[in-house]
Design a protein around this nucleic acid. Sequence first.
DNA 1: TACGCGTGGGA
DNA 2: TTCCCAAGCGT
Length: 298
Amino acid sequence: MPPSSARLPRADLARFHDDVIAWFGREARDLPWRRDASAWAVMVSEFMLQQTPVARVLPVYAAWMARWPTPADLAAEPTGEAVRAWGRLGYPRRALRLHAAAVAIVERHGGEVPASIDELRTLPGVGEYTAGAITSFAHRGRAVVMDTNIRRVFARVVSGVEFPAAGITAAERELATALLPAEDAHVWAAATMELGALVCTARSPRCVECPVASLCRWRAAGYPAHDGPARRGQAWDGTDRQCRGRLMAVLRETDAPVPKTMLDVVWPDARQRERCLDALVADGLVEPITDESYALPT
DNA sequence: TACGCGTGGGA
DNA sequence: TTCCCAAGCGT
């Protein structure tokens, strides 16, 4: 990355902050986890939002928080109940990790979601992004927050490229740190994330509505297309992921143990089906009841 | 570092 | 219709 793209002139930096935060004040969505939400509520929302769109999270989040308003409430349940309540959000291992994190919070943190990055990072399912998000949004702390939206906004406005690199680079982390304001860093994190989600989108950015279009180096450069390795999409048809999804869908439907014959009919390839079922058991998402029946873990 | 891990909606 | 991708994590 050329030196000129690593930083913004002081005056531009101030405008970047002020204009994005002012825009956020006008345009921020009224999301439930932003409305006098507990730290646990923020944490639940962050787990659900990992790779899952807001619109699909909303109803599941509402039901989840009504049923398990504190970490202790969830920790007291069988993991299978968490998996079932996760519904069709996808990546059900997140439900398992959220449950395990709730148990750890009860056992090691007196039932309160910790506020430090280091403590958060020890919780299952809490990585670099989620730790920063919980620190920032739940505790209003000053933390670097880098999700796909924020990374894209910084890549475009500051670095002048369409997309950030596949993995977070040291330079990118330094840039995000340098951009972090001294005061109200949590508002900055929320505002830049919202800008990426609503305006500076991956596919068709709405630059006409962008509060910092005049600062944007990608725009100034004439919107150069992404160069570098093509960002390969994930295969889906016939994959283990698809197979696992089919099996889990059957098990979510029923409280009682499911006869194996009911699983057999949702995936034709017996070898792959057996492998996936074994993997689901190994992951803790499925529990064998007898040789011929399975259920969500109790 | 690159890959596996679900699901479904919008362009 | 097909493709892309959506507040990542763990290995």
